[in-house]
Amino acid sequence: MKFTNSAILAFATTALAAPSATTPVKPRKAVAACSSAVTLDATTNIWQKYKLHANTYYRKEVEAAVSALTDSSLAAAAASVADIGTFLWLDTIENIGKFEPAVADVPCEEILGLVIYDLPGRDCAAKASNGELKVGEISKYKSQYIDPIVKLIKAHPNTAFALIIEPDSLPNLVTNSDKTACKNSAAGYRDGVAYALKNLNLPNVIMYLDAGHGGWLGWDANLKPGAQELAKAYTAAGKPKQLRGIATNTAGWNQWDASPGEFSTASDAKYNKCQNEKIYVETFGAALKTAGMPNHAVVDTGRNGVSGLRAEWGDWCNVKGAGFGIRPTADTGSSLADAFVWIKPGGESDGTSDSSANRYDSFCGKSDAFQPSPEAGTWNQAYFEELIQNAKPSLV
């Protein structure tokens, strides 16, 4: 059903890449890193200087996908995806092992994007992307997850890093506080996010705190509470100077500037003026400024090339008919939007369509979800080929 005003506070979350086993990957040929320590000025748009790095893990996935294409006419377009900068998800303690191979081939003019994503009771409103840490294991999150990442970044002062901090976490506390799982996770989310922001506040790091998307916190009733929730985390972390602002549309499908908007004709549209991500970035950005938090943004355009595919704004799982979107760029046309970036690796599943699976989420079985699809984070060759075919702008 369409979300009505009364359903706003129960808005469903966006499912994201879930834990996947670490696959040994040899780094590409070493390149020249910076000759001295990197210092990123978070008062400026660093994307005007740095290019998002095409990390070695996604490159290997894409190269394997090219060799397995069912349609050889897609080969050139598919191969080109390997050279597009994409964030690497450190979504388990084990996957911290991906850090060293990934950082080995980052040239000085590029920045390595990392997603920090392993809170206790992670993604409390979606079964597909539940994490490895149980509610209450906040000490383990700090000592075995955040602290090792901090140590690794400190060991590479000559490399620039862009971090997306805990997708879905704080937005869930705004809209899904009535769910028992989210209620139980709230304290750990707030403590964990503040700890991550405080300790990852390093000179060669730029951070963006996840803020959902326009169809989530963009509702009139959610704008102020959402901004206050994020600002409280920023304050609790000691107002880290390397936090630039927010990340929006992570693993999402919303258009940047579609007008009047994908769901503008819905009966409840009058309760949400954020009918595209541009309006959301500017509207939520104003609320963040009032709440006392930095308000610049990066927007995930990795899979939003096609609009009008979802039955409801909250449908998040492997949306059928999707295509790769605008490639990473700092040319956004908005003073608040620093860059369009690819946060979600296109081709990695949002969740399984197997209703008998332990982590099956009903959203992955909906009529607008691509089926069959494997477990979250697992490669889906057929879906990758669909993203290639429907890419807008086209890849070649």
Rank of each mutant, 00 (worst) to 15 (best):
G192W: 10
K29E: 14
S139T: 15
L197Q: 12
S6G: 14
K320T: 07
A155Q: 13
D361T: 05
E262P: 06
W379E: 12
A247W: 00
K289N: 14
K49D: 12
S335D: 13
A65P: 08
G321P: 03
N380H: 08
Q228S: 14
G292T: 06
E100G: 03
K98C: 04
T175A: 07
T250W: 05
K289I: 03
I46S: 04
Y117H: 07
G365E: 03
H296A: 11
A227W: 14
T70L: 08
G308S: 01
W313D: 08
A339F: 04
F340D: 00
Q371H: 11
T92I: 04
S264V: 12
P157T: 02
D368P: 06
A42N: 12
P328S: 08
L119Y: 07
G261H: 12
L173V: 11
F263I: 05
L243R: 06
D123R: 04
D168H: 03
L202C: 13
D168S: 07
K224R: 07
T283I: 04
C317M: 02
P167L: 01
A187W: 08
G121I: 04
A187P: 10
G346D: 00
V319W: 02
P294A: 04
D350A: 01
A337V: 14
L9I: 06
L16G: 15
A78M: 01
E229W: 08
K26M: 13
C364K: 01
S259L: 13
L90H: 06
S267K: 15
A126T: 15
